[in-house]
Design a protein around this nucleic acid. Structure first.
Lengths: 348, 348
DNA sequence: TTGAAAGCGCTAACAA
DNA sequence: TTGTTAGCGCTTTCAA
């Protein structure tokens, strides 16, 4: 009576899997009295279907609440409409803007974002990447340019378009949207020296990119003939509280820095808070520069000077690259330096 | 020569799709000289394969960098090892801890998280939900308990386990992990009244749950015989800057509130900042209570009193519920009230 | 312990 | 414009 009869023919023993329970495209087709392909066309290329048939099919879809299985679709079409992104963390972090704009840009292009967090751990990045590649996303956004040999091999082998972000390198895996951490370190040192600051200090988290900013900061201070930079490392703890502790240590070390460059705005807020409770006037006695230019820093008292990265632009550009590739277009200029700026405010 | 010969038989015209390029399980099987099922077993139930064969297969997998296609696996097994979560926003928000612990708990159980952000828009929630259901995740975490009729129908129809979070209701779709916003509003009002505060004010964002806290706050103040609560709505803008503006409006309105309950810690930080620049002593002249108990609020000057929600517990519990269901276990007590607490600090 | 066959739900290729 | 057929890459069922 229906097309199952073939499977239930007399000589054949029926055995295989009962279907999952959810409505399928085939069932919709039967209810609308059309072939399965036609339902597929209504969903994917509606213009190619006659209005009456289209309406009939859509009516069935509406009544049944049918939601097509994209896993099956993806398998058949080798297009998943999924983009994956891996960031160190989203908790109070500079990557938030990138993730946000990635989500938004992709949503508008009818893609979805899968997010992975490494917690700054390379092992975890490898594990995440394997899980991600297994889902055959149409593209992958990576943070940074340091990835294990294994991950590079898998990525290349899978043939999935990749965008590395938040850094620059001469040997990207595929595409690249970032900026130079070295230049930032130098620029901030020069900026502070130009404002008459002498005894510079660093309060910095312990990840590869922050370290690179810090080293360039120190090197430039030296070149400019300033005394050696004092550097306090807060390890992996990028909190307000670590910032307070760091300034306390600095203040009690005897030497009195007159400017501090922090590797994140939250650390900078900690430094400012501790300075205020020590009756140091931020902006006068102590210059403070943050990194990230979070939304709220402009409204602090005093407003915080910070290095601004256009994280949203990074996300948007990365999304555009990947969508272009997914649609089969080549990307002419697959390396973009989005630069940075020092936003001058009262704190320095 | 190989098993493709069947497809290329003389009478048949070969036409179909060339494979995608990436290594497949079938190719691994050929290289290891075993049947495809055997490779599948090595991947999923290794104990059932003899050690020698297992080693041979694993060697090939290692050499080729083969990563199994989970889309195909999911389609065949109707298990995706994917859990989806929908939150209003992750930008500087209270949901961050929940997302974080969800990610971590799921990662440990070998599941992955798909994240969607609604930006507090119900339309967007519907669109997201359709995209998500289409990927047949093994479970879905929702924020809040207000969902469109269409979404409820789809969810029920898809038969996917659901956990609603961050609120309570008598009619959950499926499972529920939350707390009472009404109770929070009442408790904070009582708390402030108990500390001798008279003229209470609200600075609140304009979403359903914040409104519910606010209404209960007002009602309780009234019951306690306090003067009417002044309420400033900041719309959808949950920023430090809105908090500053709100307190400015309050201060200039003539009436002088002696305590403010803010619907987020960031708003509270704005209120504090504005108070300080108006020479109001926070804690003495003006009590301030936040919501969320962000990491950094304990280290502010003065430290901020805030309503603490154990967002991490919500995420963990939700993850456990869904993993249990995915593994085929029933969940005995599928409704959990995680409660809340008022963390007393200097600001109130 | 291993394998052959069937099919998960969808789309690409071809035909009419 | 609509339909038929053959898979996408994997896992399940049944058999040995």
């Amino acid at each position: 009576m229906n097309d199952e009869s073939a499977a239930g023919g007399k000589g054949t023993q029926r055995r295989h899997r009962r279907n999952t329970g959810a409505m399928t495209l085939r069932q919709v087709a039967q209810l609308a009295d059309v072939a399965p392909v036609t339902v597929s066309r209504v969903l994917n290329t509606p213009d190619v279907v006659s209005p009456e048939v289209r309406e009939r099919v859509l009516a069935v879809i509406r009544e049944t609440g049918y939601v097509p299985n994209r896993l099956a679709g993806g398998l058949a079409s080798t297009r998943s409409n999924l983009i994956a992104a891996i960031v160190p963390t989203i908790t109070m972090s500079v990557f938030l803007q990138t993730v946000q704009s990635l989500t938004d840009t992709l949503f508008d292009a009818d893609y979805q974002l899968m997010l992975g967090q490494t917690g700054y751990s390379p092992e975890r990045e490898d594990a995440l990447l394997e899980a991600i590649i297994g889902r055959r996303p149409d593209g992958i956004v990576l943070t940074g340019v340091d990835h294990s040999a294994q991950s590079r091999q898998r990525l290349l082998g899978a043939g999935i378009p990749v965008v590395e972000t938040w850094d620059l390198t001469d040997h990207p895996i595929d595409m690249l949207v970032g900026f130079s951490h070295r230049d930032i370190g130098s620029s901030v040192a020069r900026y502070l020296a130009g404002r008459g600051r002498q005894q510079l200090a660093l309060v910095t988290a312990d990840d590869e990119r922050a370290r690179r900013r810090a080293s360039a900061f120190e090197a430039t201070a030296l070149e400019l003939g300033l005394p050696p930079v004092q550097r306090i490392s807060v390890g992996g703890s990028r909190t307000l509280s670590s910032g307070r502790t760091a300034l306390a240590r600095l203040a009690e070390s005897g030497s009195r820095p007159d400017a501090v460059f922090c590797s994140s705005d939250l650390l900078a807020l900690g430094v400012m808070t501790e300075a205020q409770s020590r009756e140091l006037r931020v902006g006068q006695d102590l210059g403070v520069v943050g990194f990230g230019d979070f939304d709220f820093v402009a409204d602090l008292e005093p407003a915080l000077t910070s290095v601004r990265i256009n994280g949203a632009a990074i996300g948007e550009q990365a999304a555009r690259f990947l969508v272009a590739r997914a649609e089969g277009h080549a990307v002419a200029q697959p390396v973009v330096d989005v630069g940075f700026s020092i936003v001058e405010r009262a704190s320095a």
